[in-house]
Design a protein around this nucleic acid. Sequence first.
RNA 1: GCCGGAGUGGCGAAAUUGGUAGACGCGCACGACUCAAAAUCGUGUCUCGCAAGGGGUGAGAGUUCAAUUCUCUCCUCCGGCACCA
Length: 1022
Amino acid sequence: MKNYNHKKIENKWQKEWEKKGVYNAKSPSTRAKLATGRLKNKKFYSLIEFPYPSGDGLHVGHPRPYIGMDIISRYKRMQGFNVLYPIGWDAFGLPTENYAIKTGKDPKVVTKENSNTFRRQIKSLGISFDWSREINTTDPKYYKWTQWIFLQFLKKDLAYKAKIAINWCPQDKIGLANEEVVNGCCERCGAKVEKREKEQWMLAITKYAERLDKDLDTVNYLPQIKLAQRNWIGKSEGAEINFVVRQDLTISIKVFTTRPDTIYGATYLVLAPEHKLVNLITTPSQKNYVTNYVTKSKKKSDLDRMNAEKDKTGVFTGAYAINPATKEKIPIWIADYVLASYGTGAIMAVPAHDERDFEFAKKYNLPIKQVIQPVFGIENKRDDVVHRNTITGIVKSRDGKKVLMLKWKEYDWLSGVIGGINEGELPEKAAEREVLEETGYKTRAIFVSPISIESHFYAEHKNEWRSRIDHPVVLELLSDEPEVVLPREKEKHEIKWVDIKEIFASTMFGNNKLALELALSQSAYIGFNGKHKDSLVNSGQFDGLDSEKAKKEIVKFVEGEEKITFKLRDWVFSRQRYWGEPIPVVHCEKCGVVPVPDKDLPVELPKVKNYQPTENGESPLANIKSFVDTRCPLCKGKAKRETDTMPNWAGSSWYYLRYTDPKNAKEFASMKNLRYWLGVDPVRSRARDVVASPSDRGTATSNGVDWYNGGNEHTTLHLLYSRFWHKFLFDLKLVPTPEPYKKRTSHGMILGEGGVKMSKSLGNVINPDEMVKIYGADTLRLYEMFMGPFDQSVAWSTESIIGARRFIEKVWRIASYLQQQENSVSRKSHPEGEGSSAQNFPVADKLVSPDTLTQDFLLRNVNHSQRYTGSLTKLLHKTIKKVSEDIEDMHFNTAISAMMILATEMEKTKTVSVKDFKMFLQILAPFAPHATEELWTMLGEKNTIHLSDWPKWHEGLIKDEEIKIAVQVNGKVKAEIIIPADDGEKEVTRKALAHKAILGFMAGRSVQKTIYVKNRLINIVV
RNA sequence: GCCGGAGUGGCGAAAUUGGUAGACGCGCACGACUCAAAAUCGUGUCUCGCAAGGGGUGAGAGUUCAAUUCUCUCCUCCGGCACCA
């Protein structure tokens, strides 16, 4: 057998696999014929985000997710699943277009060149993609259906045109995508970006907001992905309430609030500058100020708004509204901290309970009225211990005011130190009574301070001095008697005098200074930031009511309407660019907007000479007369084509559907194929309604793509957009499931050496071609999976890749040795085997009989991560188990580590049988497909390893007869003992105490108790 | 500011229903083999200490027989969002 040479085997096997179609998914139509073989009806659809073929080619970061999902796909294939693991090109987009502008090259040609490079690079890694299903979003046969789906949106009135503000670069005279705006300036020329109103196509994703939020309960996404989606959708429940401005003119202002319970504290209203009632209500005397302010804020760019974040501005309209709860007249202001686009564009300001309102009220001297008070006497229950606050001391503020200090106390030790408890009275109640009786003070303001005050106390039940850090709660006192009271001197507390400057309060606002300021200046009550109950004060008939209950009752009382609002905005679907799908509509003077009939789809991109957008910001298509001038499909009169194109999110919103039926010319995908691959196959499983379960914690009840892995950067937009499209298609009964993806995970980025982003400009890009050339694809694959946890970003290190290579070489040497052994058995006359390159491999004399290992080996290999004892076969089966489980959890790094341990042991002990070694090759195959295939064949196998049956581990072989446990004294490890696995506690204790190291420790001490943790340790407390 | 994620040897990292911290790999040192080198194999490699023993998972505290893991406060780094009422 020759030495390991990746160059000789990798390309060979890649060609062989492709020729035989080893990785091609079987369609449901051909499935029946194959049903007798290993491809029964189990299917598995694994998906990666298809790449954007850029001119730079692949860098080593790109393949990480492909390799990860490749391992999973190969693993599933070996388990007998019919696996669909497809790939394609998401090729519309700006970089290609900008390149076209610069060079005058046709983007189509550029895309072709780039995807050729990407394809060659990806193929050289031996990823088991089904290349027969390759798609390209810029292929008219593909974007025909993107356009067709758009027209379905149009027919259902979910696509519409609206005037909205876009980012406009005055120098380049083009509209910019958000990602092209860097710090408020144009990414290319650096000019300051302006806002400009333009007609844009929109998709009404907000109509699906509720379902997009709710159905997250039915899918198995990583929790942080669900959270990101939820935050982006931004559902908030509240109410709309009318504030009457002028009875005679029946003008009223509708506000949206999530806190109707605070309405008694609403001391003014604020309208967004763009609010339509602004002109109507402004009084003549204020007119000038208001007009000025409105014009000024309209001019403000996003950058200005960002800079102005801390400084709130506004102007009084001169008008007043009636607070429907208090019936009081409150002023109406205009301020740009209120957004026109959210809620109703108007708010009721409650400065006592909203940070922004508070800031504004302070600046313009508006009244602040406190209406929420936390319930005194906080009770936290955790670990079955009740934590309560009690008053323990008094501190003096800077201005001489006395404040009571509360401390978080713990029930258990408090009971030991407080005297004078009344029968049946809780100790902390007693303390509270004691202090309040002694001081006669009552609380007015209350806030929790996160600064910690160290105190020392004598814990009687422990019989020792202890110190602890307390987090005092500070109460402002009603009385101004400058008397200091030290309650409970028994407790030997050190009462600290604290300058009030040092105390920062933590409140419901999360702003400490604000709370302190408010507490001292307004004498207002402020709530706790945490587990507490808010109740209403200064709220008329609702006083004392729980905040949550009050919300509902007050909405009824003021005749408001409960309302759910979302942060999510409709999707701007137009780009004034060339390199995108043309929006397939025609503008007819008589008939208006007319969709292009299905038979005329696709509307293909015409050839143009110049890809530069036009002077007035229209797409380059607007300059192509032959494209623009057309006939109206309805009246056959003169008409003009739409020249806007779709954003690059369009093609990727449904590509996973096309993979199931990539060549279908009649529909975007047949229902038959969709039902099969999305898991609603009528043959195997009945289609079922998906019921949302609010208690869902990652269990999928939906069907869809079985496993979709992608980048964190796409967890909001792409994921949300494609869920939206899918739900829409579901409503049209064109797809069989309400959700596209059953499971979604993310991978971490690969950074450049030194932990910075890999980029061309930094010159730290590592090209996989070079790695494949030097080390081989298998080494690169192993290293990328071994370098760190799959979901975490990790810095590339060319220095470390050698470890993966050595591992493969080690596996190779073992195989050589085994083959040599076989040869020497069959040809006894040549025991050394001839022409062997395994010359460095010592043989024969060091052999021990199979399944019998030396005591030395046993001791060496009982380690923490993989507590194994016994034979190599045992270790093999443990490794099979670990690798199988780790693959499912994407813990590829630890799976490889386990296989390295096994390989080292195999080489060291030379006790491995060919049968066992082949099993090892099988579990390694998803990671290093080429080398394992080669060795598999060399060891006499005829069929590919990648469709062989995944090895099963035997539970009986995994159990240990002997285990090694630690012996601790007072929690510190002092010795280790080996015991039979079924030893009882008594026996183990006896053995532990008999150990000589322990005997030494025990001299002069007696055992208080022992704690025995089965298979782990025994702890002796002295 | 808010929302996520993360802080463990010289480096990438293991270990979380609390139970022997540093598996595995890189690097480094020494040894074997070799005329020599490479490759390979072996030994060692958190830290203080000759040792016996201590200390140690960003900092500080708490709970516990036992804390990288749980609780609290704080710090740093990375990613996302920016006045969403």
